[in-house]
């Protein structure tokens, strides 16, 4: 899509927080920039970073968590 990032095929991934564990998947919540918590949620596969814990920040791309975010 023009004017919006090519999120799925490009090198773009989002950082989201684990709010629920569902076996090989986890529900993550994307905290939107410049605002408080409480963003939208999506389910992602977590095999590549397992085991994950509630509250952890994951880098997600095309329905799969690619890496854990550390500070």
């Amino acid at each position: 899509m023009d004017a919006c990032s090519c999120i799925t095929c490009g090198d773009v991934a989002i950082v989201a927080r684990v709010v629920e564990l569902r076996g090989q998947s986890a529900v993550v919540e994307c905290d939107p920039p410049s605002r408080g918590a409480g963003g939208a949620r999506e389910e992602v596969a977590v095999e590549l970073v397992a085991p994950v814990e509630l509250g952890e920040q994951l880098l997600c791309h095309a329905g799969v968590a690619l890496e854990r975010v550390v500070q």
Binding site: T8, C9, G10, D11, V12, A13, A45, L48, H61, A62, G63, V64, L66
Partner: peptide, 9 residues
């Protein structure tokens, strides 16, 4: 399609 970012998916 995609680079190494997307290949794992």
């Amino acid at each position: 399609i995609g680079f190494e970012t997307t290949a794992p998916s």
